[in-house]
Computed example of a mutant assay.
Amino acid sequence: MYYWNHRGMNGWGWFVASISAILFWVLLILLIVFLVRTMNRSPGRPHNAPGRLPPERVLAERFARGEIDEDEYRRRLAVLREEHHGPDKRERAP
Rank of each mutant, 00 (worst) to 15 (best):
L28M: 05
R41E: 13
E61V: 09
G86M: 00
L30P: 00
I32D: 07
Y73W: 15
N48G: 08
H84L: 05
Y2S: 01
T38G: 15
D69T: 06
F34C: 10
L77W: 04
H84V: 03
V58K: 14
I22R: 00
S20Q: 09
V26S: 12
G11Y: 06
R92Q: 11
I22L: 13
W14D: 02
Y3Q: 00
K89P: 00
L59D: 13
R45D: 14
V26H: 10
L53T: 08
Y73H: 14
F63Y: 12
L30R: 06
D88R: 02
H6A: 07
A60H: 15
N48I: 13
L27S: 14
R45L: 14
L31I: 08
G51F: 09
L31R: 03
K89D: 02
A64S: 15
L77I: 03
F24K: 14
N5D: 01
L31Q: 00
R81W: 06
L27P: 00
E61Y: 08
P43Q: 10
E61K: 15
M1K: 04
V26C: 11
W12M: 09
G11L: 11
L35A: 09
L59K: 11
R57H: 08
P50H: 11
H47L: 15
E56T: 08
L80P: 10
V26Y: 12
H85R: 00
D71Y: 02
L35Q: 04
R62V: 03
F15V: 13
A93C: 05
W25C: 05
L80H: 13
R45F: 12
P46V: 14
V36H: 02
L27R: 05
A64I: 13
A21T: 03
L59V: 08
W12C: 06
I29F: 14
M1H: 06
L77A: 03
W25S: 06
R92N: 04
A49C: 05
L31G: 05
Y73Q: 09
E61A: 10
A49K: 09
R41S: 10
V58E: 15
